[in-house]
Design a protein around this nucleic acid. Structure first.
Lengths: 159, 159
DNA sequence: TATTGTTATACTCTATAACTATA
DNA sequence: TATAGTTATAGAGTATAACAATA
């Protein structure tokens, strides 16, 4: 079923293979992510920031004094996984763990001036690279894509 | 720049966090993929098929006698990484490595009847699960999303 | 020389479980 | 009891480099 509607010529050998996979969202999401992610790495790896460290830094910059638990929740990962990420940010001098007198269990994450600067730089580079990679999409298509991806994301953690 | 146009209220705390990340395609692609991929696993893991093994099986079913090199190329992974995947498919009894007299270096991948049956079953389950997960997207939105993801994928390997 | 399949190896990302110190 | 941060550990998934057999 659902096996017609695509002419299975030899023309589409590259990214389209004419199999059922072409109609599967998971497969296409992953392949598209790999393309964009590779671009991110090319653009930002010189700064020593992986995608996951960059996204953590982004949230620390936007929500200074956020706790690790709250940050992990927003990133959709486990607290345990965040430790190494924050360690890395601290080693880079971009973020510090600050004691919170009101609750001595938590440690607030504070971005340093260097962290803010590095973030701005990496953000600019990654945005520019994404613009290059998605240059063949119209502004409307890009807006639509972002909207639809967010619509899927609405289901996070309530599955 | 590009920091206006989104009212940054407290309403969107769940999947939307009001940070720059919301405007980054890589981040949104990954988060959306994680949602869909989790659904795939729930639907298909009982059959003992991971996403990567499923996608390999799909291509073997659609292109019987495909070689491992060709399959790796289509999947966008290295030949070396495919070995374990084919090993797994062979252990499951879904695929056999068949000698090719014309070129004794290559081994053609042939789907067994059990492999075809298991594939059909897993395809049906994963399609059904995706339909559930994306039920809040209209048919047009789903078609658009697939089209845009493919458009990004067109850049594979020519970066 | 080049290609196919393979092995060995390492790295990234992530999760689970258990621990500690606080609350 | 419950929560925040942490450690230890394991498991996917992937890549690189080198190798034997074959072209």
């Amino acid at each position: 079923m659902a096996a017609r509607a695509t002419k299975n010529t030899l023309a589409n050998v590259g990214s389209s293979d004419g199999s059922d996979l072409e109609h599967i969202f998971g497969y296409n999401l992953k392949r598209a992510y790999m393309v964009v992610h590779a671009g991110f790495r090319e653009a930002v790896e010189a700064d020593g920031l992986s995608a996951r460290v960059f996204s953590a830094l982004s949230l620390v910059v936007h929500f200074p004094n956020i706790t690790q638990s709250a940050l992990a929740r927003r990133l959709g990962i486990e607290r345990s996984g965040l430790v190494a990420i924050v360690d890395e940010l601290e080693t880079l001098g971009y973020v510090t763990r600050a004691a919170v007198p009101k609750d001595r269990r938590v440690q607030a994450l504070v971005p340093s001036p260097a962290g803010r600067a590095a973030y701005r730089d990496a953000l600019r580079k990654s945005k520019a690279r994404e613009a290059e990679i998605l240059a063949h999409l119209s502004a409307e298509e890009k807006a639509t894509l972002l909207r639809l991806l967010k619509k899927i994301r609405e289901l996070e953690d309530q599955e």
